[in-house]
Amino acid sequence: MLEIRDLHASIGGKEILKGVNLTVGEGEIHALMGQNGAGKSTLSNVIVGHPAYEVTQGSIRWQGKDLLALSPEERAHEGIFLSFQQPVEIPGVSMINFMRAALNAKRKYFGQEPLAAADFLKLMREKRKIVELDSKLANRSVNEGFSGGEKKRNEIFQMAMLEPALSILDETDSGLDVDALRIVAEGFNKLRTPKSSAIVITHYQRLLDYLKPDVVHVLIDGRIVKTGGPELAHEIEEKGFDWIKSEQ
């Protein structure tokens, strides 16, 4: 369970989040909507501990722990995963070495032995299928030369490998064609368990059609100003955000 209380955060001295309150329970999917610049990506970056952002006030608790006290890698080990809006290319680091380092770091954190090479490769093969990721891509450098769609599929592949308890999808649907969107969304749904939660940041209804959120929040100017059921997303798709602003 994730509990965000009165969260204020800034970057380069500019306050972006101005008192966010959000609770995500076990097994729930929350959609986070809002206009560009509202603070959606800032919120996800603060949750995963991006060093560029400074938390000036408030708290985040994750499964009872003070999340803000943990390093980004510890947060990852504790089950928090961010599907990046713009996945980073890392020339010269192969997907295999990258995933092995990530997985074994997590195992080490929980006092487990590193995974044997054969078992690891087997796991890679299994998980790759979930998002129909080509074996050639898995042998390449991380995201290097991947198309936009391949990069997003690669994010979900990594999610499959790491089996997080909380996934944050930051505009995972942006730049995807209809088929790629379906593959990514179906891949995500296959990975869902009764215990896994997600925060889905999106501008569009079509991703939510697949993911079926339990709760929809609207973020305006660094605060969650409206929370509702799935119907709220439809309303926004139809009417935009201005009516919510004028309600304020």
Binding site: G49, H77, L82, F98, A101, A105, V142
Partner: peptide, 11 residues
């Protein structure tokens, strides 16, 4: 790239 890797749990 450093942050991307750390987010995946790589120290």
């Amino acid at each position: 790239a450093l942050f991307y890797m750390r987010q995946r749990g790589i120290p």
